[in-house]
Amino acid sequence: MKKLDQRGMAAFEFCLVAVPLFTLMFAIFDLGRYAITMQSLRTLANAGARAIMINCYTNAAIQKTTPTCSGDPLPSDAAKQAVAPFLYNGGLTPTLSVPAAAASPITVTASQPGFTMIMPIWGTTLNAPSASTTIPF
Rank of each mutant, 00 (worst) to 15 (best):
9 M>T: 09
9 M>K: 03
9 M>I: 02
10 A>E: 08
11 A>Q: 05
12 F>H: 12
14 F>N: 03
14 F>S: 10
16 L>M: 12
18 A>E: 03
20 P>W: 02
20 P>M: 11
22 F>P: 02
22 F>D: 13
23 T>Y: 05
24 L>F: 08
24 L>C: 12
26 F>E: 10
28 I>V: 15
29 F>K: 13
30 D>S: 05
30 D>N: 10
32 G>E: 09
32 G>L: 07
34 Y>D: 06
38 M>V: 09
38 M>F: 08
40 S>A: 01
46 N>F: 11
48 G>S: 07
52 I>Q: 08
53 M>K: 13
55 N>C: 09
57 Y>Q: 14
60 A>K: 03
61 A>I: 06
61 A>V: 08
61 A>Q: 13
62 I>S: 12
62 I>V: 13
64 K>S: 15
65 T>E: 06
71 G>L: 09
71 G>V: 10
72 D>P: 10
76 S>H: 14
78 A>R: 07
80 K>F: 02
82 A>Y: 13
82 A>T: 13
82 A>G: 14
84 A>C: 12
89 N>G: 09
90 G>D: 10
90 G>A: 09
91 G>C: 07
92 L>V: 04
94 P>A: 04
94 P>T: 01
99 P>I: 15
99 P>S: 12
99 P>C: 12
100 A>P: 05
100 A>Q: 08
107 T>D: 04
108 V>W: 00
113 P>A: 08
114 G>T: 00
115 F>Q: 03
115 F>E: 04
116 T>C: 15
117 M>Y: 03
118 I>V: 04
119 M>C: 11
121 I>F: 12
122 W>S: 14
124 T>C: 01
126 L>Q: 00
127 N>P: 04
127 N>H: 05
128 A>F: 10
129 P>T: 10
130 S>I: 03
131 A>S: 02
134 T>D: 15
135 I>D: 01
135 I>M: 06
